[in-house]
Amino acid sequence: MTASADHVKALLRAHAEGDEEAFYSVALQLAAKSARQGHTRLASELRELIDSAHAQPIRRHEPTPVVQPRGELADLVTASYPEVRLSDMTLARTLRHELQRVLHEQRQRERLENHGFAPICRLLLVGLPGTGKSMSAAMLAKELSLPLFTVRLDGLISKFMGQTAAKLRLVFDAAAKSRAVYLFDEFDAIGAERRVEGDVGEARRILNSFLLFLDEARPESLVVAATNHPGILDNALFRRFDAVITYDIPSADEAIEVLRRRLVSMNTKGVNWEELADRVGGLSHAELVRAGEAAAKAAILGGEVPLSTSALTAALDSRRATRHG
């Protein structure tokens, strides 16, 4: 037996906490240790098992269904139970590490609180449209087996002008009672700089109320704010969040991975990915997905499977032209 006591304990701890990434990391360490000790067959079998498990993600218990928002709350939030996992996402290494840290602290919430510390529970996600901010909120909900409650702030303000602060109080009260991931989308709708010319008293009251509610937020839930325009946010906001995570346009390698993931059901053996790497610059994750889907559907309906490099190139160019048109 090559497993040390520390490895066994680490495996059991990761399993108990539902930390899939840590579980696989320890398993890979075991395989490497077996190989170093000359147990090549065992090391090979362990790696095969790990690869197989990665190919078919572990099925966890679904989140316990909660009552759909009712009454006034039903007009403010929409509830969903996302299916996207961290392993499904194409992310830069530093971004993946930041999200893993959030998950780890949330999974160790009680342990941290026993020592007088709170886990990360207030996140500000900033970046261009389509770079994965909303998907990250959905992933956090799935990985933590929590529902996702989405608050569209632009719609909230237009629908409840003059009552927005009171409605926000209802949402934060719900966050204290019902553990979930609360996504405040289009956050710049209330987070814009308070000194902008033409700003009105109502906007200042809404922002001040949000800052107060955010300060009072308890770690039972994750409060996630997402914005495409960080440059216009009030400076007071940034220090109220436990972490500010920035999303960028994917690199060429990341862009190719996005396309490969989306086209996994297609025959892409004839695609020259190196050639495509020169055509993906400047496109967001969402734009890459749409381009891949367009090329795939055209190939299927036109009877031109397997997918060709030229078809993907045309779809990418078309997506870029549409954006700049």
Rank of each mutant, 00 (worst) to 15 (best):
H15A: 15
L28Q: 14
L99Q: 05
R41Y: 10
L307R: 10
D278K: 15
F160L: 10
E21V: 15
P219G: 03
A189Y: 08
V224P: 08
R169L: 01
G191T: 09
T313D: 10
T322D: 12
N228I: 12
E20I: 15
E143N: 09
V126R: 05
L49Q: 13
T78N: 09
H97W: 00
M161Y: 13
I58V: 15
H324M: 12
Q108F: 04
N235L: 06
A277W: 02
R36P: 02
K133I: 05
I157P: 09
R152I: 05
V196M: 04
T227S: 13
L183W: 00
A189W: 10
T268D: 06
D234Y: 09
H97R: 14
A295W: 08
A315I: 07
K9Q: 12
S251C: 02
L140H: 05
A296M: 07
L170I: 10
A166V: 11
L103N: 02
V271L: 03
L316I: 08
T227Q: 08
V271D: 00
R290Y: 06
D317R: 15
A74Q: 12
G231I: 02
L233A: 08
E193M: 09
R169K: 14
A79I: 12
E48W: 04
P306I: 07
R60H: 12
E45H: 13
V305I: 13
R122M: 01
L211S: 04
A16I: 00
S310W: 03
T40D: 14
D6F: 07
E83M: 08
R218C: 02
A255W: 00
E45K: 14
L95A: 11
G302I: 01
I157G: 06
F160N: 11
M89P: 02
L86E: 06
A189C: 09
E275R: 14
E110I: 07
V271Y: 05
A22Q: 13
A10R: 14
E110K: 00
A311I: 01
S251A: 11
L263I: 00
Y182Q: 01
E62P: 09
G127S: 06
Q108I: 01
V181W: 06
I256S: 05
H285E: 05
A55M: 10
A165V: 07
E202H: 15
E254C: 04
R36Y: 02
E20P: 00
V171K: 11
A180Y: 06
I249D: 02
L42A: 14
G325E: 08
T227C: 10
G155C: 02
F172S: 08
Q68K: 13
E48L: 14
R323T: 00
G292N: 04
F213G: 00
V289R: 13
R194P: 09
I245F: 02
T309E: 08
G198Q: 06
H115G: 04
G132P: 07
L276T: 01
R195Q: 11
A277Q: 14
L144Y: 03
